[in-house]
Write a protein that binds this DNA or RNA. Structure first.
Lengths: 363, 363
DNA sequence: AATTATTTGTGCGTATGTATC
DNA sequence: AGATACATACGCACAAATAAT
């Protein structure tokens, strides 16, 4: 049973609503009798009735006198709500506003509205968002998975979406536990391969890589880093790789670089997981009196506004942002039109392009 | 009492509903307490409660804990949707993501979801957004008005919201055609007054002002500019003021400044409508070979990420962003709880603070 | 066809909690 | 502080509808 939440009858109502939304209680199915529920949950029949009355008024259940209480099929004829759910890790930060902008442009052109949620890249929050959005009358969903490399406890919510036949598409990553789902990815490995290849081409040999450990993007960018080193005939040195997690993203990378410098490690260049990290590294290097790009070259990833406005213009890899959002929306619109969408998952992989600005220099 | 009709509680419910529909019990009026009704109609309090609960779920009555049960004039059958509409001029640009973030934080903490729309500061788009959102089952609305200084053709949509008793609150501006509406404003005049006063205090005399002509914010910032000049004993010269509109916002300001410079006008400082304009001016001055702040001082407005990341750190006036969004959401939540919200409009005026960075210098 | 068990619907009584004035 | 009023919760009894025996 859910909740520390409020009243006994609300707790029971929440529990039953959850069972219905998750598909444990299915449309047309009879729920246990009031007396059975009262005994099972050790509450009076009166309280059980109150809980049931809540769900009846919400339209989840229908009571039949002398017979029992039944789960109602809430989606006859699919009343078109015109709502699409959008769940991202963040709303206001970094490149996310522009991705959302791309999604909104396409959807609003087609008469849809966005219901916006964000998870803060926290799986618990993701669960809350998914649960909440299941209670809304949405026609489809665009999701950026949370910490997508790890095992997810939220798979059941996606399965519930499947059982309600609500199409959804992942961006930036996907859950490997789910098969045959549509997604749009960046070719993160290729993007980082190009950035590191560029650094190697400039004559750099000691190339530090900084990567995020708890999402697919980090893993793939690391792969591209390793492959580029190999193809350039440079040795892969684990000590030249810095891993960070969502929780320590604001401190770990700069601290690790500082430690490297202070312990006398030789560094020619630093390839960063993204522009946010790169900008922090630029600041750290500045504080240490190291000039970019004269002493050390730095690359970012995403081509965000940070790369446009930082004091040293950041050489970076261009994330398609609006284009990715718009594409996700377009594919979702296709899925909405096609009843067989479950059988035809769409897998798009966008190739990011290296954007050379001013943070790298020939050695 | 009506009846022959079924149950005791239904008979009472019918009676009360009739009283409401016939006007004997009027909107806002308090009905007798449960105990009084029980005695009057010789039934148990429990039965009275059942009757009242029917009318509450039909939307005729609203119970207020510790106070009484009141007649409501909302349309019957309104289920709680948990959705709040948010209409802003832009989604992804500038300070809007952070305002939306503030709104979202408060609303999602309180179990609401956001339906997001943007107008591109176009009144036609605003009409589309409002029309669309009226068809959704929203409980409340947060709106940033479009070109709010001009006469609006969309007033009828707001009146429709009133007639549906859907509360709404304006941010950044409001329509003067509508009376007694809640809004949150920045004290734009005070913010610009402080910025221009600061420039005057640094010894600048020829202070150019650049303002947006088609919204209240622009008008008010201009007022603060004029007052600051006056209070500093400087003459107000209309030729030192540049007005632009939404449509030419990306070109007019820089062109006008360039024209001033090229025609030999003397300029000590430029006070800009906002950071976006200021950054364009910085670029224009750079292209003309004029150094900031050595040759000309420049101020912005809003303290956006642009002011943090531009090559010359921009002295600006701090917009509360998240705080403003969160406050709008909190006030709306209050309005949702209070049936009398129409009679108690909330008018909040936030005071922005000057943030001195590096784009101004003593003359 | 009548009986019986089950299940929801109606109604009463009581006690305690909590918000408001 | 106390009174008032709604909110939650337990218990009991009987009515009405249904399905199975």
């Amino acid at each position: 049973m859910d909740s520390q939440n409020q009243t006994k009858y609300n707790a029971l109502a929440d529990f039953l609503r959850e069972e219905i939304l998750m598909g444990s209680i299915r449309p047309g199915e009879k729920i246990p009798s009031e007396n059975e529920l009262a005994e099972k949950f050790s509450m009076s029949r009166h309280t059980v009735r109150k809980a049931i009355s809540v769900l009846v008024s919400e339209g989840y259940l229908a009571a039949r006198h002398g017979q029992g209480t039944y789960c109602v099929d809430r989606r006859p004829g699919r009343a078109r709500s015109g709502n699409i759910g959008v769940i991202t890790t963040y709303i206001s930060e970094y490149i996310f506003p522009r991705i959302i902008q791309g999604i909104d442009r396409v959807l609003s052109e087609n008469g849809y509205s966005i219901i916006l949620k964000n998870t803060g890249n926290d799986t618990g929050m993701e669960a809350v968002c998914l649960k909440d959005i299941l209670t809304k009358n949405i026609e489809g969903l665009i999701v950026e998975p949370t910490k997508s490399v790890l095992y997810s406890n939220n798979i059941r919510y996606y399965q519930a979406l499947d059982s309600h036949r609500i199409p959804y598409i992942f961006i930036h990553g996907y859950y490997q536990q789910l098969e045959n789902k549509s997604y749009i990815l960046l070719d993160d490995a290729k993007g980082m391969y190009d950035a590191v290849g560029y650094l190697a081409g400039l004559g750099h040999r000691k190339i530090v890589g900084i990567f995020k450990a708890d999402d697919i993007q980090g893993i793939n960018r690391h792969k591209g880093y390793a492959k580029a080193l190999n193809d350039a005939g440079l040795a892969y040195d684990p000590d030249n790789v810095i891993w960070f997690h969502t929780e320590d993203r604001e401190t770990k990378p700069s601290q690790a670089v500082r430690h490297m410098i202070e312990t006398g490690r030789e560094i020619d260049a630093i390839a960063c997981y993204n522009d946010q990290v790169a900008v922090r590294i630029l600041k750290q290097l500045y504080d240490l009196g190291i000039r970019v790009p004269h002493d050390i070259s730095v690359t970012g990833f995403d081509d965000s506004f940070l790369s446009e406005n930082s004091p040293v213009e950041l050489t970076t890899v261009a994330h398609p942002k609006e284009k990715l959002g718009a594409l996700a929306a377009q594919i979702l619109l296709q899925m909405l039109k096609d009843d067989d969408y479950l059988k035809k998952p769409v897998h798009e992989i966008l190739i990011p392009k290296l954007v050379v600005k001013g943070s790298c220099m020939k050695r």
